[in-house]
Nucleic acid binder design. Structure first.
Lengths: 337, 337
DNA sequence: CCACCAAATCTAATCGTTTAGCTGCGTTCG
DNA sequence: CGAACGCAGCTAAACGATTAGATTTGGTGG
């Protein structure tokens, strides 16, 4: 802390420029001098100050990750993958949680600018993304939108094909003979909510079916929410024979309802979901679900980001969409009643 | 980025000192001037550079969190709680994963110093903690050790009473009539591994029991590890009537073994664990386990850290130990055979 | 009416790096 | 032999904020 490049230079009997050259390997320094410098660095346990560096050439070696719900295991996993990715590039990861609140996102983006982070991966919060977008325009802060798409396609985005996910699961359920299929979806103003629901609708309509409105519920992607709305649906005497749950956290809530109501799956009802969470693998029965390649998605997002950091704004915006895979568990069976 | 305090000063027709005073509210500025400055700030969308600030008074507004396994849901939850806590204090959270490797921890700590983070919460990696400790001495970097204790008590620590956790679970199993109790523990050089195992031993010895060596296995806190060693134990014809699993991730692996071997819990065997993970709540049957107050622990760690940041090294090192709570699920029953 | 004081604002040094340009010196070649 | 050149290393000016101390201003009391 107290030791600066000057101290090193003095001890080694050279100029600060030479020390800098040695440290950054940015110019040739004769072996003897080089050795003296390195010895001095070691002796003083000198660490260059990133603050001073940042000040000089505007790069902070920081990448920010702003997720919409850090309590969601899906995003926890994204954090994990992102940390590994940025570490490989030599960056450090600053993590923020917008908690689905636009005002938090605003505050956070201001902070990101303040820290002069070199780039940011954002899971945009609902309808207020215009704001993020504006920041993007104004400041040319390299940015990748993650997981949810927004109207404006001028940003780099990494998303999943939500419609395909909904379709995939629904087709599977229909093939098993189900006709009374219900669903618990996420907020319909998010592509992760809307898209999955639309996929389900498409699949049903393609087979001449329409979901009964009383079997359709939407709400926040949270376990308690899922618990209470699933309970409403499942306590009906004419409950659906199958339920499509829009995300992993919600699926947990639904499984809890089944346990509490004494329903057995898949005997009494079939359950399938999208966006499973790590750890859910231990559920009995294993859930039939679509999975997204979280790690690949995260790596791709950071690849795009670093590329934009390096090459600037002359890169065309890129929109990468990942496809879901249907994973069969034991939570779905042929239609009963 | 391009707009500096000078630009603001010029536009407002004042000196940079005045702008600084207004922004930081650090000296009285007459209302009219103040207003002009604020207007200029708004017009230029000016954001102060944290890099310059850090350089000037050595504070970076960054707190680092170094966990030993970011893929573990326990630590994912710690990240979540920590982000919320540091945000409340006005800091940003830089997250690192040492992945249980001492050399990673070393590299990370160097980086933390480089960034001149104001403080760091570390989950120390195994036996190499001496190194972290040394860093601590040398540089007076405010630091709190989290989750695992180390020999040296000169650092602030926030830990859990692992021995109590092991004892609590084991006593419960013994009370149910179990005598042939096995265990899958974590690495014995970590207090989280050793302590829980010791607690189990204590509880058994207090009742005049000794665990059979063939029912005791230890290994890394990972699901696959637990899966394979649990399989070894459970395939024996004389398998134990109860198993104590040292952590949540491992418990998932064990439940998977049960499913694969067609064993039913608690009919065929009782399972209990420590350190449950979020989401595991959806398991059928619900696991009997000890839980730790993750959020309170994390908050406490950051309280200690911020306090040390503010008050410096004249604060005595504090060691806070949290007690586990036994949560009853349906995964344990009276002894069978 | 002037000297003096306090309050408001400004000037300029400073934090620790990087880096453009400069210096001095040994080679090379006409 | 001397001009020209290349090279290793140096000097000093940034980067953008904070802040001690200087300066201005207006008001007050003698």
């Amino acid at each position: 802390m107290a030791t600066t490049i000057r101290d090193v230079a003095r001890l080694a009997g050279v100029s600060t420029a030479t020390v800098s050259a040695v440290i950054n390997d940015t110019a040739f320094v004769s072996p003897p001098l080089r050795e003296r410098v390195l010895a001095a660095v070691r002796e003083l346990a000198y660490t260059p100050s990133q603050a001073a560096r940042s000040l000089k050439h505007g790069k902070s070696q920081l990448i920010a990750l702003v997720v919409s719900d850090l309590a969601n295991p899906f995003f926890a996993r994204v954090v994990w993958a992102a940390e590994a990715a940025v570490a490989a590039w030599g960056y450090s990861l600053v993590v923020y949680n917008s908690d689905e609140k636009p005002e938090n996102e605003r505050r956070i983006m201001a902070r990101v600018r303040e820290l002069s982070c070199d780039g940011v991966v954002v899971v945009p919060v609902g309808p207020a993304t215009y704001r993020t977008q504006r920041d993007f325009d104004g400041k040319a802060l390299p940015m990748v939108l993650f997981g949810r798409s927004v109207e404006d396609k001028r940003a780099d985005t990494v998303t999943i094909d939500n419609v395909a996910a909904g379709r995939l699961v629904t087709n599977y359920l229909i093939d098993l003979g189900h006709r009374r299929i219900g669903t618990i979806t996420g907020p319909l103003h998010l592509t992760t909510g809307r898209g999955r629901y639309d996929g389900m609708l498409q699949a049903m309509q393609a087979r001449g079916l329409t979901p009964a409105p009383e079997y359709v519920r939407s709400g926040e992607f949270r376990e308690e929410v899922a618990y209470s709305v699933a309970r409403e649906i499942l306590e009906r005497p004419d409950r659906p024979t199958a339920l499509y749950i829009a995300n992993g956290v919600m699926a947990l809530g639904v499984m809890r309802v089944l346990a509490d109501l004494g329903l057995e799956c898949p005997r009494d009802i079939s359950i399938a979901s999208t966006d499973t969470i790590s750890g859910i693998g231990g559920l009995q029965p294993r859930l039939t679900r679509t999975e997204h390649p979280i790690i690949e998605m995260t790596n791709e997002a950071l690849r795009l980001l670093v590329d934009r950091i390096d090459r600037g704004n002359d890169v065309q915006p890129r929109n990468v969409v990942f496809q879901p895979t249907l994973i069969l568990g034991e939570s779905c069976g042929p239609v009963v009643a």
